[in-house]
Design a protein around this nucleic acid. Structure first.
Lengths: 333, 333
DNA sequence: TTGAAAGCGCTAACAT
DNA sequence: ATGTTAGCGCTTTCAA
């Protein structure tokens, strides 16, 4: 029923090996032979079976991608970066959502390795010792995208989360604020707990401002909780907010409007992410640009190097960030 | 190096067939044998090779998903719906972005079929005859998600785009408007050109209102073009807007604010999509709920039926829509 | 430049 | 309940 390489060989009066050579662009084929084979391939509508090829060659030209949730715009952006570079290098992607659930993550790794992916791009808020253990045993190379493994055992690409957060908070301090709230995403995420929070705290300390636990609100990254955080903080009357992502920042803006605060006159906000939401907010958000697309793209590019067994100079890559100044902060020229 | 079924068989003193049986949960294995085999599998760290399995069984338990752009929240939502159901039925997903480019779409179909996917979920604004032709020849079942093929040759799941648009425009008319603008997405998309636009037009005609070409603005679905559309329409001073998606609607809101219009007092807006953006807008958007997640989920569910060769009652499924009333329209109780 | 033949790791009859 | 044996469709030595 389906046309195989054998059918083509027979029709073209050559061996399977020759057909295989022309299909794979091997140069050791006489032009005339190549032409003849190509013609038969066309006539028969032959399409190479990638599964058989994968079994014989031990390469599937597909990579696994494990991310928390594709319906979240941050991860979707990351995925697009990964996919674009994957396509460029002729890989396909098996995409799965983990919801940051460690068991799912473990099981997904297992499944993908079983499917013989040539490599894996992995993203998660917390790379547990268990995950790390599995990754180290993996036969396929793995790169962590926007995820931190402090042991540096696994390759990764990130930005300087600490530095970015420190700079944001410092800027708020420099603008004269003393009561700066930090609206954080889940502390189960290492970036929030060990980088942003610590940078926030250190920036305050360095400026001689006392760290107040109550000015830190842990949220689930949603608009609604951003609004609620403002409500919760009302008694302490912060005059500036450092917020973990754009969606929550919009919640903060609306919460602030609800209690009659003007932005940036009464309250300044610095967000983190700089998605297109930052431009769609009113006032538009000053935001730390977190280059998700680039992180995805660079991760995938790095993975291709591992898959090709190229020499890697540095397995921990740090991409630059910048602060995009807009209307939610006073811009002192 | 890698552990194969043969290694397990040898260690457990059984045949490969028996190992295969326990791995695949076949009941024809004596419990004691099963236990012994499982133990060896554990010891050796055996992991079945899905590629070999795929070659032998002609099933890969992976399905292809071709969508325009995963970084667009609408398609991301769709993808999540697909993935959730796929996971439920133990399928993995190969995800690719087509950017609605027909050549890419064709090539992606080819690649996925080559990879022997068990089925495909496809989304695109325009199912061209060429695409249709390829799909009909496909050995793997295909279902169109949120995409229209009027020949009904390929299974699909959609909503009643025409009815939804008609209802939205009718509502605006009922609220007393005569000059209703239609901010459309690209007319290259059949839904826009042949459903929303025609419904808009018919609703006007049915109400005895003249259709004016100039009140229709074709945009690329972005916030920026939504804003610009308002600018372009300023000379004609429309008092109501029917807008093709939430992001553009927010652009329209901001454009309207820019020219001093109050919403909904001066101008009413009905959007289309009802993503979380609709709740994040100020005023919050009245929007036609376009259930992307559900469309994805139902498409995938339908696909599983085809893959199982189950009897399908109806290959064209239409999901319900509804209008979510919020603050961008006057709500007459 | 081309062909022959041995796998790749598994499933699925078929036998026993 | 278990084993034997063909493949599945291709790549890849090795020879010629």
């Amino acid at each position: 029923m389906t046309v195989t390489i054998y059918d083509v060989a027979r029709e073209a009066n050559v061996s399977m090996a020759t057909v295989s050579r022309v299909v794979n662009g091997n140069q050791n084929v006489k032009p005339a032979t190549r032409k003849k084979v190509l013609k038969v391939i066309e006539e028969l509508g032959y399409r190479p079976n990638a599964v058989a090829r994968g079994l014989a060659s031990k390469k599937t030209t597909t990579v696994g991608v494990i991310i928390p949730d594709i319906s979240n715009s941050m991860y979707a952006e990351l995925a697009r970066g990964i996919e674009d570079i994957a396509t460029m290098y002729r890989y396909n992607i098996i995409l799965s959502n983990s919801d940051q659930n460690q068991n799912k993550e473990l099981q997904l790794l297992e499944t993908m390795l079983g499917k013989q992916v040539d490599g894996i791009v992995f993203m998660s808020g917390a790379i547990t010792p268990e995950l790390l253990h599995e990754m180290e045993r993996s036969s396929a190379p793995i790169v962590l995208a926007g995820s931190i493994d402090e042991s540096s055992a696994i390759a990764s690409v990130n930005i300087d989360y600490y530095g970015a957060a420190y700079e944001a908070v410092k800027k708020l301090i420099d603008n004269g604020h003393q009561k700066i709230a930090f609206i954080s995403g889940p502390m189960t995420s290492k970036v929030n707990k060990d980088y942003k929070l610590k940078a926030y705290r250190q920036a305050l300390v360095d400026a001689g401002i006392e760290f107040e636990e109550r000015l830190v609100v842990e949220c689930n990254n949603t608009y609604e909780e951003g609004m609620e955080a403002v409500e919760a903080l009302k008694p302490y009357d912060p005059t500036a907010y450092f917020v973990s992502n754009d969606e929550m920042s919009i919640g903060v803006i609306h919460g602030l409007e609800g209690i009659g605060k003007k932005i940036p006159e009464d309250v300044e906000i610095i967000s983190y992410e700089n998605s297109k939401l930052a431009r769609m907010a009113r006032p538009m958000l000053t935001s730390i640009a977190f280059p998700l697309y680039d992180i995805g793209a660079v991760s995938m590019r790095l993975l291709t190097k591992y898959m090709n067994k190229e020499e890697i100079e540095e397995n921990q890559v740090i991409l630059p960030y910048r602060i995009e100044e807009r209307q939610s902060t006073k811009n002192n020229a």
